[in-house]
Design a protein around this nucleic acid. Structure first.
Length: 396
DNA sequence: GTGATAAGCACCCCTCCAAT
DNA sequence: ATTGGAGGGGTGCTTATCAC
């Protein structure tokens, strides 16, 4: 798993997409080591440590925080299990036929990719919504339904980790906090992206389609695409078939689901699709249009605005209080060194003032009755030592 | 003005000791 | 067993200053 974020001097996360390739001024969020941006043509763009990779990033038993079902649709299956699943899909799922118990690997049930349905004809097992995702069979609308709760669930899990690590003063606190912040940044990115789908008609009578995401307005993006395509087509027109704000999460799944129709025009222009029949093209567009407009939940609004989570707010408040406390302490220390009196000034009550107090008067009365110190203290509702003090002053 | 720290002080609670 | 004396530890109020 690649590291996709570094931190700048202001301690804010910076995405690999926002820096040029080569050595950077950014630091590793986990170990503070220097980072080099690796932005080549073959591998996914990522940061590498300029020197030695730190333990937190290189640890193989630990995954960097990633959005569930965002760019890995094999879920957690091994190659063999994935093959079994695809095989079952080909033989049963495609035709919506039930799968008999003999054919069902228990791991696929445990992971909720297949489920039991006693009303089915033939076999009593069928694909779940989740199970259809690895084979790209789930509609875009249902994909959203499956992914959205998982996104929130994972966010809350990471917040919980931070909270536990913070309260226990755990050595993994920094790691947990970075995990959360990276996840928030990724979450924010998909929410702030608008999914768009374009139809491109060329003068040769060909029609191709393009899926993509942008954070800018669609006109700007279309102008840019026009520019890209100008070197490959002489005459063409672009029609925006739809835009779906806050649906950046769908882009990768779309590519996964429709990879069969994917065509590469040239070089890096890879997000284009060519359908063999008009029906195919219509089905894809229908699939997209069945997605309702994305309404943001309060949690998603907070993420989109970059608002810190409750636990981060608490940590920030505590840190601010600590800084202030230190500032006050040093200020008072400095004042003391200047000869300034710090603290309560030593002024003492005169014996007359003390004896004049109502409580002292009550004590004197009790003592005159011949009561013991404890009895007098009890009667005057004061401490034994106060009675003693009064008595001592009376005797001077 | 608010909230924090420093220091003095009164007070409380408790223990120990010795005298009664 | 009761009482007075001495003193340590802890709490909380008071009064001061400091940073923001």
């Amino acid at each position: 798993m690649w590291l996709r974020y570094g931190i700048d001097q202001d301690k804010t996360l910076v995405s690999i997409e926002d820096v040029p390739r080569g050595k950077t001024q950014l630091r590793c969020p986990y170990c503070n080591g220097e980072l080099t941006a690796k932005k080549g043509k073959r591998k996914e763009h990522h940061f590498a440590h300029t020197n030695e990779t730190c333990r937190e990033v290189s640890r193989s038993d630990r995954l960097l925080p990633t959005l569930p079902l965002y760019d890995n649709f094999n879920i957690w299956l091994t190659g063999k299990e994935l093959k079994q699943l695809k095989d079952l899909w080909e033989r049963y799922g495609v035709n919506d036929r039930g799968i008999s118990v003999k054919e069902v690997p228990s791991i696929l049930i445990r992971e909720k990719l297949l489920e039991h349905n006693p009303y089915r004809y033939g076999g009593e097992y069928q694909f779940t919504k989740l199970g259809k995702i690895p084979v790209g069979a789930l509609s875009l609308m249902l994909f959203n339904q499956v992914q959205e709760p998982l996104l929130i669930e994972r966010l809350q899990e990471l917040e919980k980790n931070v909270q536990v690590a913070y309260l226990n003063d755990s050595p993994t606190f920094n790691e947990c906090l970075r995990d959360l912040q990276i996840y928030q940044a990724e979450f924010r990115k998909i929410l702030s992206n608008t999914l768009y789908y374009l139809q491109i008609d060329t003068s040769g009578g060909n029609t191709i389609y393009k899926i993509g995401v942008t954070r800018r307005d669609i006109e700007t993006r279309v102008a840019e695409i026009k520019n890209d395509l100008a070197s490959h087509f002489e005459n063409f027109s672009i029609k925006v078939l739809g835009t779906w704000p806050h649906r950046g999460n769908v882009e990768k799944y779309f590519k996964h689901r429709y990879s069969f129709f994917n065509v590469t025009i040239i070089g890096n222009l890879t997000e284009y699709y060519n359908f063999f029949t008009p029906e195919d093209a219509k089905a894809v567009l229908r699939d997209l249009r069945r997605m309702q407009a994305k309404g943001l939940s309060p949690i998603e609004v907070d993420i989109l605005e970059g608002k810190p989570s409750q636990i981060e707010q608490l940590i920030a408040d505590n840190e601010r209080a600590e800084r202030r406390s230190q500032a006050i302490k040093t200020g008072m220390e400095r004042a003391k060194n200047w000869g300034q009196n710090v603290g309560r000034p030593s002024v003492s009550e005169s014996p007359e003032e003390f004896l004049g107090k109502p409580s002292s008067q009550r004590i004197i009365a009790a003592l005159h009755e011949g009561l013991s110190l404890r009895q007098a203290a009890e009667k005057a509702d004061v401490a034994v030592n106060t009675v003693r003090k009064v008595k001592a002053l009376l005797n001077t």
